[in-house]
Computed example of a mutant assay.
Amino acid sequence: MNPVYESYQRLQFDEPLPGVLRITMANPGRLNSADAVMHGELVRVWRDIDADPDVSVAIIRGSKGAFSSGGDLDLVKEMTEDFTVLSRVWKEARDLVYNVINCSKPIVSAMEGPAVGAGLVAGLLADISIAAKDARIIDGHTRLGVAAGDHAAIVWPLLCGMAKAKYYLMLCESVSGEEAERIGLVSLCTDASELEEKSLEIATRLANGSPSALRWTKYALNNWLRMAGPTFDTSLALEFMGFTGPDAKEGLASLKAKRKPDFDQNCPL
């Protein structure tokens, strides 16, 4: 395996099949919430994969039955208090979307349990998105008191239509994997017990396909997302502007108050 992956702390890597690199998000005790370290690693990993000649396909998943539970609340608190941190995370959020879109290698996501925040960005922007039937896909921005930015404004309307996108993004409704497949938000769903096998099956088929044909098909289709660049930039600016206002602080306090007492204090659910 390429030694470049040895520097990662929150992302773990293995090669279950030749040409297939599997990425596992791991933040123990916090349902794989994206702290400052993981957020930065989710940005740069796609550039490393794009440059790795030994990788044909990437799979992204979460550890211990959870995909990703959103932004770590310590990081969210810093964003409401420190403009330098806010600016850094804003740039990372923008780069995360474009790095996934521009990665020339096919990406498969395997989502189970909660799928929220930065992890969900990669999960839904993946070329083939697979969700367990009982997965819980949530865009939690408005619950936190900020606009639904990141990937949501460009990809949700394209995948499931404007009416469904507004319903789920404005109300922060949870979408099961089964419902996500029905409305077109994900490529397919499967039983949780079959999720790993299905993701490997799809990755194998992609790895055995024509690299150039897959690369340029992905590039052409993702032009739909690139054309939404002005919408994305505006939504991202509106989202991060919200972190400087009172609604975000109230939303953060509300999330902390509603959190289950047996959860880690920095877990956002």
Results as ranks from 00 to 15, higher is better:
residue 2 N to C: 02
residue 2 N to D: 05
residue 3 P to Y: 01
residue 5 Y to G: 00
residue 7 S to T: 14
residue 7 S to F: 08
residue 9 Q to G: 13
residue 9 Q to A: 14
residue 10 R to D: 02
residue 10 R to T: 05
residue 11 L to W: 07
residue 21 L to Y: 13
residue 24 T to I: 15
residue 24 T to V: 15
residue 25 M to D: 00
residue 27 N to S: 11
residue 28 P to M: 11
residue 30 R to E: 07
residue 33 S to R: 03
residue 35 D to K: 04
residue 37 V to Y: 02
residue 38 M to C: 06
residue 39 H to L: 08
residue 39 H to N: 11
residue 40 G to T: 13
residue 41 E to R: 02
residue 43 V to Y: 06
residue 48 D to M: 07
residue 49 I to N: 00
residue 52 D to N: 13
residue 53 P to M: 12
residue 57 V to T: 14
residue 58 A to H: 10
residue 58 A to R: 06
residue 61 R to M: 15
residue 61 R to V: 14
residue 65 G to T: 10
residue 67 F to W: 04
residue 70 G to Q: 08
residue 70 G to A: 06
residue 72 D to Y: 04
residue 72 D to M: 03
residue 82 D to M: 13
residue 85 V to M: 06
residue 86 L to R: 12
residue 86 L to Y: 04
residue 89 V to H: 03
residue 94 R to P: 07
residue 94 R to M: 13
residue 96 L to V: 05
residue 97 V to C: 01
residue 98 Y to L: 12
residue 98 Y to M: 09
residue 101 I to G: 02
residue 102 N to I: 10
residue 103 C to K: 00
residue 103 C to E: 00
residue 104 S to Y: 05
residue 105 K to F: 01
residue 109 S to I: 07
residue 110 A to C: 09
residue 114 P to C: 09
residue 114 P to K: 07
residue 114 P to A: 08
residue 115 A to H: 03
residue 117 G to L: 10
residue 118 A to I: 05
residue 120 L to M: 13
residue 125 L to C: 05
residue 125 L to Y: 04
residue 127 D to T: 05
residue 127 D to I: 03
residue 130 I to C: 02
residue 135 A to G: 03
residue 136 R to A: 14
residue 139 D to E: 10
residue 140 G to N: 13
residue 141 H to G: 09
residue 141 H to N: 15
residue 144 L to Q: 06
residue 146 V to S: 01
residue 147 A to Q: 02
residue 148 A to W: 00
residue 152 A to L: 08
residue 153 A to G: 09
residue 155 V to T: 09
residue 157 P to D: 00
residue 157 P to V: 04
residue 158 L to E: 04
residue 159 L to S: 00
residue 159 L to I: 02
residue 161 G to W: 04
residue 167 Y to C: 05
residue 170 M to I: 01
residue 171 L to A: 04
residue 171 L to N: 01
residue 174 S to V: 00
residue 175 V to K: 00
residue 178 E to S: 14
residue 178 E to T: 10
residue 179 E to M: 14
residue 179 E to G: 12
residue 182 R to T: 14
residue 183 I to H: 10
residue 187 S to M: 07
residue 187 S to I: 05
residue 192 A to L: 11
residue 193 S to C: 07
residue 195 L to F: 01
residue 199 S to K: 04
residue 199 S to W: 02
residue 205 R to F: 09
residue 206 L to F: 09
residue 206 L to H: 05
residue 206 L to A: 09
residue 211 P to T: 11
residue 212 S to I: 11
residue 213 A to C: 09
residue 214 L to H: 09
residue 215 R to G: 08
residue 216 W to M: 15
residue 218 K to C: 06
residue 219 Y to S: 14
residue 221 L to Q: 09
residue 222 N to A: 08
residue 224 W to P: 00
residue 228 A to Q: 14
residue 229 G to K: 15
residue 231 T to C: 12
residue 232 F to Y: 15
residue 238 L to N: 04
residue 244 T to K: 07
residue 245 G to H: 07
residue 246 P to G: 08
residue 247 D to I: 12
residue 248 A to T: 01
residue 249 K to C: 01
residue 252 L to F: 10
residue 256 K to P: 01
residue 261 P to R: 15
residue 264 D to W: 08
residue 265 Q to N: 13
residue 266 N to S: 11
residue 267 C to F: 12
